[in-house]
Computed example of a mutant assay.
Amino acid sequence: MTALWLTVALMTGAAVFVVLGSLARRREVPADAAEADVAVYRDQIDEIARDRARGLIDERDADSARVEVARRLIAASDRGGLEAEAAPSVRRRRAAAVIALVGLPLVSLGGYAVLGSPGVPDQPLAARAKQAPDVSRVADMVSRVEAALAKNPDDGRGWEVIAPIYLGMGRADDAAGAYRNVIRLLGSTPDRQANLGEALFAAAEGVVTQDARIAFERSVEGDAPSIKGSLYLARAAQQDGDLPAALARLKTLMERAPKDAPYLGALKDELQRMAEVPPLPLPTGAEAEALKTPEQRMAKVREMVDALGDRLAGEGGDLGEWLRLARARAVLGDTDKARAAIEQARAKFSGDGRAAARLDALALGLGLEGRGA
């Protein structure tokens, strides 16, 4: 910090002296230069009169010469007056420059020392961008909004602003109350009903309660049903043990979604979650330590997946193993082999409705069928 202030002081001083030096330098003009010019031009006028008297020039030439000499005489007289006034003007400009270049920096630095925070360390933008939001500021903002709502509880926009903040802060019950106020004051829309249901779902710690289900069902009514509401209703169906109904709802969303729909990723994640795919057991201990490079680890994974596929093709296996094989094939980029695994599993578990639903969910979630296939 000391080095910074020293550098600033030196730079300011250098700038001051450069400007003052420029102001100090001026072109020296003899004091009687203008008076000498005036005297010369007056002599010329007298000379013209003498030449006319001797008949050396005619009257027309004499008049022209007198006009030109008179013009030069007036100009010389004006320069003399300006130079007489110049000295005080230059002194005033120099005084103003000294005040501006010396006084203003001193006043500015002194004011910053009193009102600013010169002892605070620097805060680079890159470092500040990585910091988490100031919780105290968020809490202060929430307090201000709450105070305003306490004075005007019928401010629907205020409730709509604070509701998602409550949810982000983990205050799900408050968020649900805020969304109820929004619907009461501003009217019901699919998005507002879906947000209310989401807050009730969070308040119930991940369970779709009856109140949440009602809100989600309202959110999918009409011509513009809520995607969020449909996702939660699918989860409610799975929660009730009706996986085919959950899959049917998500499959409909998948088929109707535009190719660039921003919620396709969430749909696929939800479908894979419903498939309940057990993880592939990976090497551990000494065997894992022996795999030094990414290429070695990838080769080991492929070896394990191929071994699983050979075993299931020869001996068969449970549904979880078939799901694991299909997902592993897809992750490795072997989409044709992943589809073949799905079809083999469907044939094997053709009489099990729940197994069929899990296989369908995984196929959709991996993009092997429907949208993205």
Rank of each mutant, 00 (worst) to 15 (best):
A290R: 12
I183Q: 04
R371E: 09
R50V: 13
D140S: 14
A215F: 02
T7K: 06
A299D: 10
G222P: 02
P294K: 08
R329M: 11
G111T: 14
A34D: 08
Y41P: 00
D61G: 04
G316K: 09
G351R: 15
D306N: 14
M11T: 14
A234I: 09
A148N: 08
A203G: 07
L366Q: 05
L264N: 03
T335H: 13
P105A: 03
G316Y: 11
L20Y: 12
M169L: 09
L271V: 11
A212C: 01
V305Q: 03
A199I: 10
A203N: 05
P133Q: 07
A290F: 02
A266T: 11
G156C: 12
L73R: 10
G80K: 08
R371A: 12
P278Q: 05
A75Q: 13
L23H: 11
R297I: 07
S77G: 06
G111Y: 15
V16H: 04
A248C: 01
G119N: 09
A361Y: 02
L149E: 06
D37R: 15
A62V: 07
R297F: 13
E28Q: 14
L308N: 01
P278S: 05
A9F: 10
N195D: 13
N152M: 13
R354A: 11
R358H: 05
G372N: 10
Y166T: 00
L149Q: 05
D242W: 01
K348N: 08
V207D: 07
R79L: 05
P124N: 06
P153K: 10
E85G: 12
P153Q: 02
R52K: 09
A31E: 10
D154P: 03
D122K: 11
V145W: 07
P118Q: 09
R26F: 10
S188E: 13
R311K: 12
K151W: 05
G116C: 07
Q131F: 10
A97D: 01
D174S: 10
S22A: 15
V142D: 02
L186P: 03
E270T: 14
A194F: 03
V207M: 03
P133L: 07
A132G: 09
D223E: 13
A139F: 12
A286Q: 08
R324I: 06
L10D: 04
R213H: 01
V19Q: 11
